[in-house]
Amino acid sequence: MAKKPNNKRRDFLQLSTVTLGAVGTAAFIWPFLKSMSPAEDTLAAGSTEVDISAIEEGQSITIKWRGKPVFIKKRTKDEIEAAKMVQAGDLRDPQDDADRVQKEEWLVLVGVCTHLGCVPLGQKVSDMKGEYDGWYCPCHGSHYDTSGRIRKGPAPKNLDVPPYTFLNDTTIKIG
């Protein structure tokens, strides 16, 4: 051994080679992973306009928005009262009824249970509506009230309120 090998130089070369290799591999994998995310046309699914003039008080309709069911319900006086009576602080996902509606007779919800994604029952007159007279998810027994808030069962959150605007008194634009 005439000369001690230059370890610093060797370490630098090894480290930079491994780093470059790792970055290169990650850069190569990224497009493959990203290709599994929703495609552009899926993202552009956009908005839906709904005519609500034919909905009677107490009636609820289901429309499809971005592949999901959306509930549009014209609530009765009693239902509005029941929803307002609740102290938000007592709820699992505290929210006042006023924060969940734009006009208090119209309740707009994404009809997807926040537990594991089933569609809750309660849209038809004959459906089970659960203990709080709103919606009831048959999959794992979550009960929602007349504001679509979780009251009992395994679901962690209230039914989502989608973004929507009243274009006029008889038309809602969802999305």
Partner: peptide, 25 residues
Amino acid sequence: VITNLFSAIPIIGEGLKTWLLGDYN
């Protein structure tokens, strides 16, 4: 139901689910 299991994971859950599905549902 099964893919929604992943949405239970805090913070990244929803994104992970969407990535697995390639759509919002």
